[in-house]
């Protein structure tokens, strides 16, 4: 079972992503809806992969990622941005990679998300 952490201020969104991933029985999903506590939670849970929203109150997604990458113990944890700022078409065109970072566009297609998670956690 792979441990996944979702960081997104939208609670209901997290709820369904968690449900959809856990139904496959390959993933164990934790949710963080308070971006201020995200880094702390990463250290506690030590996930195999992080799904992180970009636009969030207090601290945005890229800032959380930057902080994780600065730290030895967290810098190797792979992450995927879940965002409404880009479209499905754009992510498909670039095979989910834009400027070396992985993206999955909202609304999330579960198959695409699982495929991307698998690519990063092989």
């Amino acid at each position: 079972m792979k441990k996944i952490l979702i960081i997104d201020d939208e609670e209901d969104f997290c709820y369904f992503v968690k449900k959809n991933l856990e139904m496959t029985e390959y993933f164990e999903v934790a949710v963080c809806t308070d971006s201020a506590k995200a880094v702390q939670q990463v250290r506690q849970i030590r996930p195999d992969l992080i799904l992180v929203d970009i636009m969030m109150p207090v601290i945005d997604g890229p800032s959380i990622v930057a902080e994780l990458e600065e730290s030895e113990d967290t810098k190797n944890i792979p992450f995927v941005f879940l965002t409404a700022m880009i479209t499905n078409e754009e992510t498909k065109k670039n095979k989910n990679i834009i400027n070396d970072a992985y993206f999955v566009a909202k609304p999330v297609n579960v198959k695409e998300l699982i495929y991307t998670i698998n690519r990063l956690t092989q």
Partner: peptide, 21 residues
């Protein structure tokens, strides 16, 4: 568009869940 995308994302997430169930 951004404001709409979030609720749409949740609805779709919920639908995919229901679909699997």
């Amino acid at each position: 568009a951004h404001e709409l995308k979030n609720p749409l994302g949740i609805i779709l997430g919920g639908l995919e869940f229901l679909e699997t169930i």
